[in-house]
Amino acid sequence: MQNEENTLKNQANPEKPKNNTGRVVLIALLLISLILNLFQWYNSNQEAGNYETTIDSMAIDNAEVDRQLSLTKAELEQYRGRSEQLDSLLNDATGKIAEQEDKIRALMSSGKKSSANNAALRRQLEELKALKDKYLEEIDRLIMENQRLQSENDSLAVELSNNVTVTNSLQARLKVAEQLRVDRVSVTPQKKRAIGGKAVATSMAKRTEKIDACFVVLENAVASRGTKLISLRLVAPDGKPLAGTSQGTFVNVDNGQEMTATANHQLDYDGSSMDLCLTWEDESKPLVPGKYGVEVYIDGALVFTSSFTLE
């Protein structure tokens, strides 16, 4: 009886096991679909992250490009104006950097935001840096070479200056050695005697009618031979030269001024000692008492000064 009841129950629900199996399959399919969707979502997020990273890297490189270009130009241009060689080198560097900049700008404006483009941009930046370093090395070499040449020029200038100084010193010594000198200068104021008219020495200004200045032109082995202009100046107490019958003019070699001589004489000098007397003579007006200067010039150069006093 019991078995019959079970048989009847089974016959009443024949599809129940099949329905359970379908439900399990459906759940499994839903889980698989969910897993696939999650996987696709993860991949999409990963790709988006990589894309954002690429864009960020490109943005960093763009800023770096502007900075590197600016620094490169500024670092090189600071050496302009120091020499023609450096300026020529910098002109060449400017052209090369401009070419490199064009390549970099072309990559930046291509619009391709990819890792390959980013890598190419970085390579161009490295080439820019290498180009800058190359020109800095050449600039350094030129600067050091210019410094060496400047040092040599300075040494040569000092040596030349020393040689010029020595030459000038020798020339000055030679000029001094060539200059004729006088010695044993004797100045004698004279008056004429009332009887006989013979000239005799006097110390009185009002009686002085004639003044003789006698001296020896000394021997000089290095002086040039030929005509020498010997000039005598007797300077009155008022500062004016006495102008006698044999007066003349000459040019003072120290200041280039033309001066009045009390007496001039053309001496044919042969290198030996020579005696000479120059005279002032004027009976038209008396001299004034006081101190009188005596100056002897040879070819315009002052070689002797002295003074005497008339009462």
Rank of each mutant, 00 (worst) to 15 (best):
E127R: 09
Q266S: 14
S161Y: 14
T72R: 00
E283M: 03
T167Y: 14
S109V: 01
V65E: 03
K129S: 13
Q179H: 06
R181W: 02
T262D: 07
V251M: 01
K191I: 01
K103Q: 00
P286N: 05
K129Q: 14
A236M: 08
A119K: 05
Q266K: 13
F308S: 00
L156A: 05
Q179G: 05
Y51S: 13
S246Q: 09
E47K: 15
A261V: 03
L180P: 00
Y297I: 04
R105A: 04
V294Q: 08
D275T: 13
N62E: 02
E281H: 05
G81E: 09
K228E: 02
E15W: 15
N255Q: 11
E4N: 14
S272G: 05
M108I: 10
E99D: 13
L174D: 06
E178L: 08
V24G: 10
G256F: 12
I60T: 07
E258G: 13
A130M: 03
S109Q: 12
M274G: 02
S44P: 02
K228Q: 11
Q78G: 07
N37Q: 04
K291R: 13
S109R: 09
L160N: 14
E283F: 09
A116C: 05
R181D: 04
D183M: 12
E281G: 01
G22H: 10
Q257R: 13
D254T: 09
M204G: 04
L107Y: 00
A177P: 04
I139G: 02
R181M: 03
M1Q: 12
Y42K: 11
G300Y: 15
R225L: 15
E47R: 14
A48N: 13
N255W: 01
M274E: 13
L276G: 03
R67E: 06
N220T: 00
N168Y: 08
N19K: 15
V200C: 02
T21L: 14
E4V: 07
R193V: 01
N45H: 08
G197K: 08
A74M: 05
S246G: 02
T309L: 10
L149T: 06
K175F: 13
M144A: 10
Y42P: 09
S155A: 15
K9T: 04
A28W: 02
P286E: 14
G49S: 12
N13F: 15
R80N: 10
N163P: 03
N3W: 09
G300P: 04
I35W: 01
A48R: 14
Y297P: 06
Q46M: 07
A119F: 09
L278P: 02
V24A: 14
S83C: 07
C277E: 06
A119R: 08
Q257T: 06
V235T: 15
D270A: 15
S70Q: 11
A12R: 13
V158H: 06
S44N: 09
D61G: 08
L229K: 14
S155L: 11
T249V: 12
R207C: 01
G239V: 00
I211L: 01
P237D: 04
G81F: 12
T72C: 01
E101P: 06
D92G: 07
A12G: 05
A120E: 15
V253H: 11
V235L: 13
L38H: 08
D56F: 11
R105W: 06
K175M: 09
K291H: 09
R193W: 06
R173G: 00
N255Y: 00
Q257P: 05
L121D: 03
K175W: 12
E311Y: 10
A205W: 04
D66T: 06
